[in-house]
Design a binder for these strands. Structure first.
Length: 568
RNA sequence: CGGGGCGUAGCUCAGCCUGGUAGAGCGCACGGUUCGGGACCGUGAGGCCGGAGGUUCAAAUCCUCUCGCCCCGACCA
C-alpha cells in the first residue's frame, strides 16, 4: 500500500476526551473516529488490525470445531420476551419500534437468536454437539461508555454458542473453547491471564475470563504464582483468615465513641486492632433489608452477597434507611439488637471472634466485649470476603498477587437456562425430549485490539505485536527528490508486495521528521529507511519499532531481511 | 440516574467574570527558501460562538429552557 493513495491521517493534537493511551493513540494514529458517545467508525488503518485479529479468531474457532454463521443486529422483541430478558435486561437493551409499532431491540448478545435457530433445525441427539459462532456488531446502551474501544456502546464481538446433549458434552465444548482462547491470545502475543469469574446475571455454573494485563484495566484479578490459580476479585476465594487470639468472654459494655463512624477511628479510639472490630453494613435488596458482617480490617464482596441472597444486586442502604433500621447514624450499626426484619449474614472471618467491638445501633456509641454465640442470634455464615493481594491462595496457600486486567474474553457454561425457556429440545436415544446444554463464549474484537495497544506502546506511539499489526513493514524513503532513493524504495516495496508481505510505503512528500514521527506513532513493527547517505554506500537501514536498533543492510538483501523480520 | 465540567475555525483552546468590529496555535491553499526526527518567511481561505426563547440601543458574554459531549459513582466482551 502506498501511503499517498491510502486513507491514513494522523494527528498531533490529542483528542480532548481521550483518557487512556489506547484511545489516544487509536485516534491519533487514524484508526478510529467517534461518531457518538461509545460509537466509532473504524478507519482503514484500524480496521486492518481488527481484521488481523478476526482472522486469528476464525482460524482457532474453526480448528476447535465451531462453525461460523451471521445473525442479525436487530432482534424481534418476541424472542426476548420468550427468554424473559425483555424485562430482565434493563435499560442497556436498546429498544426500537418499526413503522408498524412492532417492538425490536438491538442485539446486545445473541443467545435468543441462536437458540431460535438451533431449535428449528436440531431435533435429535444425532445432530449434537454443535457450536456456532459469529463475529458481529453488538449494541449495549452502556450507562457510561468510555475509554474508546474499551467500553463502547456499539462494539464488535466474536461470540460462540455450544449445544450439547448433557453436562459431559458441555464440559468438553467448554474445554475446547477454553483452549482455543488460550491459543488465540497467545497467537496475538498478548500477556494474558485466565481467571475464574463470577457468572453474574447470565447464570450458569462455570465461567472463566481472559484478561489482558494492563494498568488501565477495569477489572481486578488475583493470581497465584505457585499453582496458577487466578480469579476475578468478584469471585476470588481465599483460605480462612488468621484469627486474632481468642480471649475469655468478657462483659459486654457500651462505650461512648463520638464521631467514630469508621472502623479505623473506632479502633484507634479504643486502642484495639481493626481485626477486633466487626463492621456491619446495611444493604437494601429485593429480598428485604440485610445486615452484612465482616471483620473490621476487611471489605465485603457485594457480588458474593448478592449471589448468596440470589438477587441480581444489592445496594448499600442510604442514610435514611440506615437510621430507620439501626436507629442510629451511619457508622454505628451493629448485630446486637437490630430489628428482626433485618436478615443478618456474617462473613466467615467473623466466626469465632471473641470480645469484639461493633456498633451499638445508637449514634456515637459502640459495644465492646461482644461475642457472637452469646450476644447475637445468628445462624448464617458464608463467604462474603473481598479477597485482595497478599491473601492466601485457596488452593496452595501461597500469597496471591493483585493485578489489573482488561477483560477480553469470557466463557460461560449456561446449562439449560435458555434452552428450557425457549424449548430448544432434542430427542435422546430413549426417545425422551430433553433441553440442550448450552455454553457461550465471547471475545471482544475491538477491545482486544485496544488492549494490545494498552500493553504495547511507548511515549511516541503504538508498538504493534506482529500478529495484530495493520502492516508489518514500513518502507520509508527519506526524500522524494533523490531518484536513487525513490527507485530503491520502489524496488524494496514491490518485492515485498510480491512476497505477500503487508507493506506500507511512505511515499508522501513530507519532511523526514514528519515521517519518522508518524512511523513511531502508527507503530509498524519493521521499518526500512532509505536515505541518500546510506544508499550512497549501497545500504538501507532496517530497524524494529520495539527497540529501534538500526541495522545497515545492503539494498539487495533488504527485502529478504525485512521479510524475515516481518515473519517473526 | 445522582454529583461535577465543557460546547467558540477542520483540531486543541483563549475571549465570557466586567455586554460594544470574533481571536491564537496547529492544520489547509498559494508563492518562495528548506529537506536524516513534527522547518522558515510571506499571502490567503475558513465561524449561525451547540439550539430556542428572553433581558438590552446592543449578547459568544447576562437569564431561562433545551440538546450534545466529557469526568466521578452502580454494568460488562
Amino acid at each position: 500500500m502506498r501511503w499517498s493513495r491510502y486513507y491514513l491521517y494522523t494527528t498531533r493534537e490529542v483528542p480532548a476526551d481521550a483518557e487512556v493511551v489506547s484511545h489516544r493513540l487509536m485516534v491519533r494514529a487514524g484508526m478510529i473516529r467517534k461518531e457518538a458517545a461509545g460509537i466509532y467508525s473504524y478507519l482503514p488503518f484500524g480496521w486492518r488490525s481488527l481484521r488481523k485479529l478476526s482472522a486469528i479468531v476464525r482460524r482457532e474457532m474453526d480448528a476447535a470445531g465451531a462453525v461460523e454463521l451471521h445473525m442479525p443486529v436487530v432482534h424481534d422483541a418476541d424472542l426476548w420476551r420468550e427468554s424473559g430478558r425483555w424485562q430482565a435486561y434493563g435499560r442497556e437493551l436498546l429498544r426500537v419500534k418499526d413503522r408498524h409499532e412492532r417492538d425490536f431491540c438491538l442485539g446486545p448478545t445473541h443467545e435468543e437468536v441462536v437458540t431460535d435457530i438451533v431449535r428449528r433445525d436440531v431435533r435429535s441427539y444425532r445432530q449434537l454437539p454443535t457450536n456456532l459462532y459469529q463475529i458481529q456488531v453488538k449494541f449495549r446502551d452502556e450507562i457510561r461508555p468510555r475509554f474508546g474501544l474499551m467500553r463502547g456502546r456499539e462494539f464488535i464481538m466474536k461470540d460462540a454458542y455450544s449445544f450439547d446433549v448433557d453436562d459431559a458434552g458441555l464440559d468438553a465444548a467448554y474445554e475446547a473453547m477454553d483452549l482455543a482462547y488460550q491459543r488465540i491470545f497467545t497467537a496475538c502475543k498478548l500477556e494474558f491471564s485466565r481467571v475464574e469469574a463470577d457468572t453474574g446475571a447470565i447464570g450458569g455454573s462455570s465461567s472463566h475470563e481472559f484478561m489482558v494485563l494492563a494498568e488501565t484495566g477495569e477489572s481486578e484479578v488475583v493470581s497465584c504464582r505457585e499453582c496458577g490459580y487466578g480469579a476475578n476479585v468478584e469471585r476470588a476465594e481465599t483460605r480462612p483468615l488468621a484469627a486474632p487470639e481468642p480471649e475469655e468472654p468478657a462483659e459486654r459494655r457500651e462505650v461512648h465513641t463520638p464521631d467514630c463512624a469508621t472502623v479505623a477511628e473506632v479502633a484507634e479510639l479504643l486502642g484495639v486492632g481493626p481485626e477486633r472490630v466487626v463492621k456491619t453494613l446495611l444493604y437494601e435488596t429485593t429480598a428485604g433489608p440485610v445486615a452484612a458482617l465482616v471483620r473490621g480490617d476487611r471489605e465485603i464482596n457485594e457480588i458474593k452477597l448478592a449471589n448468596h441472597l440470589e438477587v441480581p444486586e444489592v445496594t448499600l442502604a442510604g442514610e435514611a434507611l440506615v437510621r430507620s433500621l439501626s436507629g442510629a447514624d451511619v457508622g454505628f450499626a451493629g448485630p446486637v439488637g437490630l430489628p428482626d426484619s433485618v436478615r443478618l449474614i456474617a462473613d466467615d472471618s467473623v466466626r469465632g471472634l471473641t470480645n469484639f467491638v461493633c456498633g451499638a445501633n445508637k449514634t456515637d456509641a459502640h459495644l465492646t466485649g461482644v461475642n457472637l454465640e452469646r450476644d447475637v442470634d445468628l445462624a448464617e455464615f458464608t463467604d462474603l470476603l473481598l479477597v485482595t493481594g497478599g491473601d492466601a491462595c485457596p488452593r496452595c496457600g501461597n500469597e496471591l498477587g493483585l493485578s489489573r486486567g482488561i477483560e477480553v474474553g469470557h466463557i460461560f457454561k449456561l446449562g439449560a437456562k435458555y434452552s428450557e425457556a425457549m424449548s430448544c429440545n432434542y430427542t435422546d436415544e430413549e426417545g425422551r425430549e430433553r433441553p440442550m446444554e448450552m455454553g457461550c463464549y465471547g471475545l471482544g474484537i475491538g477491545r482486544t485490539v485496544a488492549a494490545a495497544i494498552e500493553q504495547n506502546h511507548d511515549d511516541k506511539g503504538i508498538i504493534w505485536p506482529l500478529p495484530l499489526a495493520p502492516f508489518t513493514v514500513l518502507v520509508l524513503p527519506l526524500t522524494n527528490r533523490d531518484e536513487s532513493v525513490v527507485g530503491a524504495a520502489e524496488g524494496v516495496y514491490q518485492d515485498l508486495v510480491a512476497r505477500g508481505v503487508d507493506v506500507l510505503l511512505d511515499d508522501r512528500d513530507e519532511r523526514p521528521g514528519v515521517k519518522f514521527n508518524d512511523a513511531d506513532l502508527i507503530g509498524v513493527p519493521v521499518r526500512v529507511v532509505i536515505g541518500s547517505k546510506s544508499l550512497a554506500d549501497g545500504n538501507v537501514e532496517i530497524s524494529l519499532r520495539r527497540d529501534g536498533e538500526k541495522e545497515l543492510v545492503p539494498v539487495e538483501g533488504a527485502v529478504e531481511r525485512a521479510a524475515e523480520l516481518a515473519a517473526g
